[in-house]
Simulated assay, not measured.
Amino acid sequence: MAMYVVQVMGGRERHVAELINKIKPESIEECFAPSFEFMKKRGGEWRRVTDILLPGYLFIVSDDATKAYAQLRAIPAFTRLLGSRDDGFTPLTSDEMAWLETFTTVRGRVVPMSTAIIEGDRVIVTDGPLKGHETLISKIDRHKRLAFLDMHMFGRNKTIKVGLEVVRKRVAIA
Rank of each mutant, 00 (worst) to 15 (best):
A74Q: 06
A77V: 03
L53P: 09
Y57G: 00
I52Y: 05
W46H: 13
L58I: 03
M39W: 11
A65C: 09
F89D: 03
K41P: 11
L53S: 08
P76I: 02
Y57P: 05
L58Y: 04
G83A: 04
D64P: 08
A68T: 05
I52H: 08
I60F: 01
S94C: 13
M97Q: 14
R85D: 15
R47L: 14
A74I: 05
F89Y: 12
L82E: 08
K40D: 09
R85M: 15
A65F: 03
E45L: 14
D51P: 11
M97D: 12
A74M: 11
K40Y: 02
S94H: 11
S94E: 13
K40F: 10
G44I: 06
G56T: 05
T90V: 15
P91T: 02
E45K: 15
A77Q: 05
M39S: 15
V61A: 10
A65P: 14
L58E: 04
P55V: 07
L82R: 09
R47V: 14
T79N: 07
A74W: 01
T90L: 04
D64E: 06
T93H: 08
Y69I: 09
F89V: 02
L72G: 00
D51W: 06
G43L: 09
P91N: 00
M39T: 13
R48S: 14
L92R: 03
R47F: 12
L82A: 12
D51C: 09
P76H: 03
M39D: 13
A74D: 08
G56D: 10
A68M: 07
L54M: 04
F89S: 04
D64S: 08
R80I: 09
A74F: 06
K40R: 15
Q71G: 01
R73C: 03
R73F: 07
P55C: 02
G43W: 02
A68W: 01
G83L: 05
R42F: 12
D63N: 13
R42A: 14
R85K: 15
R48T: 15
F78P: 06
S94Q: 15
D87H: 13
L53R: 01
D63A: 08
L72S: 00
S62A: 05
L82H: 09
S94F: 11
P76T: 03
L53E: 05
T93W: 01
L53N: 01
E96P: 02
M97G: 10
F89E: 06
Y57A: 02
